[in-house]
């Protein structure tokens, strides 16, 4: 059967968040297309990895375990995936738009002569009519991405080639357990049949990877709170909204000074500068020091009781109201309207 397959990136002995986000999306696409969701891990042996993967609704997990397959290297991983895709003929293949995914995916797409779209921010299923050839296509993957320096949003399709390959940015999609008891099959690949000696001509001499820390700079959506949030407990709402939207949480200096949130999350001149697609400023008045760190965000929504708060002057949307009422409504209406 032509299924959906997700390449699971390995990070510190576990699966990278971006891959879990893709599995979450992949499960939804599989339900829509009435096919199965598959995942592939190429690594040294990681015991119990299937326990992490199956709850995301994975039906088949391919494991290519070999000491030589970790850390990631282009050629051996490309060989495993190219051969596996040739055998399984997935209709859709998804990878993270990370240093690894963006290095690996084009190599596979070139070998399979199939279409690949980089850095998608949204994936949908839809139809297409080729007007010239008067040909109809059903259930194609719409690969939606910004292009031209963010000035346009393009919807890309691959009508005739399979798999339809796409890489997706970390943090733009939600990560959500599908069913904690979900059980799939494990298929172990005999790696000697997938990689050859020539795949190991490039050598890693040295490697320095920092542990993953809080880094809100990479988030595409940031929900940020100020002193107006009132308490540390009220910040929980912001984490909930950020989680629902697939974003991260930031704060103003006043909120950090008040101990509502740690300094690593501070946005502004003495914190980090962020440029997400969407910045939601909750209970933030908008002092210059804060605005300097976020005014280049593509879209800004402010939520503030004070209609004259300076933040409103740089906001695309200024919601005048109490954060304690507005945020639960945002969550409620998002859940109601999101696909």
């Amino acid at each position: 059967m032509n299924n959906i397959i997700v390449y699971c990136e390995i990070e510190e002995g576990g699966i990278a968040d971006v891959s879990l986000e893709l599995l979450t999306k992949g499960r939804k696409l599989a339900d829509r297309l009435n096919c199965e969701l598959e995942a592939v891990v190429v690594s040294n042996e990681i015991k119990g990895i299937e326990k992490v993967v199956f709850p995301y609704g994975v039906d088949t997990l391919y494991l290519a375990f070999d000491e030589k397959l970790y850390p990631y290297q282009t050629l051996p991983h490309a060989s495993v995936l190219t051969k596996l895709f040739e055998e399984q003929k997935p209709q859709i293949a998804l990878l993270g738009a990370t240093s690894i995914g963006r290095d690996l995916a084009p190599r596979i797409a070139s070998a399979l002569k199939c279409g690949l779209t980089a850095d998608c921010t949204s994936l949908e299923i839809g139809d297409h009519r080729d007007k010239k050839q008067k040909k109809d296509y059903h259930d194609l993957l719409y690969q939606i991405r910004p292009a031209f320096g963010g000035n346009i949003i393009a919807t890309i399709i691959n009508p005739d080639t399979r798999p339809q390959m796409a890489t997706v940015r970390e943090g733009v999609m939600k990560k959500e357990i599908f069913d904690p008891k979900y059980k799939g099959k494990v298929k172990k690949l005999k790696t000697s049949e997938y990689v050859s000696k020539e795949d190991f001509v490039v050598k890693i001499l040295e490697r320095h990877i920092e542990k993953k820390k809080i880094d809100i700079k990479s988030a595409q959506i940031i929900v940020s709170g100020g002193y107006g949030m009132g308490s540390k407990e009220n910040f929980e709402m912001l984490f909930e909204l950020a989680d629902v939207l697939g974003g991260d949480v930031g704060g103003s200096r006043a909120a950090v000074d008040a101990g509502f949130i740690p300094h690593e999350r501070q946005v502004g001149q003495t914190g980090v500068t962020v440029r997400p697609h969407l910045y939601i400023a909750c209970g933030i008045s908008g002092a210059v020091q804060h605005r300097a760190g976020m005014e280049e965000s593509a879209m800004i929504i402010s939520i503030n009781k004070d209609p004259n708060a300076p933040i409103n002057s740089i906001a695309d949307y200024a919601i005048i109201g109490d954060v304690g009422e507005v945020i639960p409504k945002l969550i409620k209406f998002y859940k109601k309207n999101a696909k």
Partner: peptide, 18 residues
Amino acid sequence: PTKVKKVTNVVFKAKESK
């Protein structure tokens, strides 16, 4: 193999808040 199905221009608005 890839075709552009649709292109939407991102509209830059003057910051006139709604």
